[in-house]
């Protein structure tokens, strides 16, 4: 058996988070928040629009970096969590490849991106396609799925780079297609840096 995506998505989609008596959500070894997508997209749109031409790449890199570090640290918490252990690990028969399949099922179930792996050369290269993601609503110019770029890089680092937390920045992700740019899906390619 390998990871059965639909089963994982259905199980993980039921997981909800909510602030405790202190208004905090300590989960997956981090403090979690729930933010409105309208806020997140508006912020990246405004920052990119306001940045002078020579600074736009820095802003883009900063937005990807925020998603990357969030994904790397939270991702480690997710793939070692009780819920991942219960739902995904029993189906893992192909090591890191199945962990990644489980991770993209989680991305889908938790509303980050309805996405999956379409090509994988272990430890070298991965191609992701996403048929819905919240940054697809982002208005602006060019390819703008900063979050999914960062998350894809993070999870490939977690799967194939040095053991957490020493494997950061081993791989890089670039976006080659985007729903926000008129393509039918978003496409993301992870390669060694």
């Amino acid at each position: 058996m390998t990871v059965m995506r639909d089963t994982v998505v259905k199980s993980l989609a039921k997981v909800t988070v909510q602030g405790d008596e202190n208004g905090l959500i300590p989960e997956y070894e981090v403090l979690v928040n729930l933010l409105p997508v309208s806020l997140l997209n508006r912020l990246s749109e405004r920052l990119m629009a306001a940045a002078p031409p020579e600074r736009k790449r820095d802003v883009e890199a900063g937005l990807v970096r925020a998603a990357y570090e969030c994904g790397y640290h939270t991702g480690c918490g997710i793939i070692t969590s009780e819920v991942f252990n219960d739902v995904v690990l029993p189906m893992v028969t192909e090591g890191e490849k199945d962990i990644l399949r489980g991770a993209y099922a989680a991305f889908t179930a938790w509303g980050w991106a309805k996405s999956g792996i379409v090509q994988l050369k272990e430890g070298e290269r991965m191609v992701i396609r996403a048929f819905d993601y919240y940054e697809a609503d982002n208005t602006g110019e060019g390819l703008r799925a900063y979050m999914l770029r960062g998350l894809s890089q993070a999870f490939f680092d977690l799967a194939y780079a040095d053991t957490y937390p020493d494997g950061m920045d081993t791989f890089v992700c670039r976006q080659t297609k985007g729903i926000e740019a008129g393509d039918p899906y978003g496409e993301f390619i992870v390669t060694r840096k």
Binding site: L31, S38, E69, H73, T74
Partner: peptide, 10 residues
């Protein structure tokens, strides 16, 4: 309203 999880790192 559409919401999504992130962490304190983000």
């Amino acid at each position: 309203h559409c919401v999504v999880m992130h962490s304190h790192h983000y």
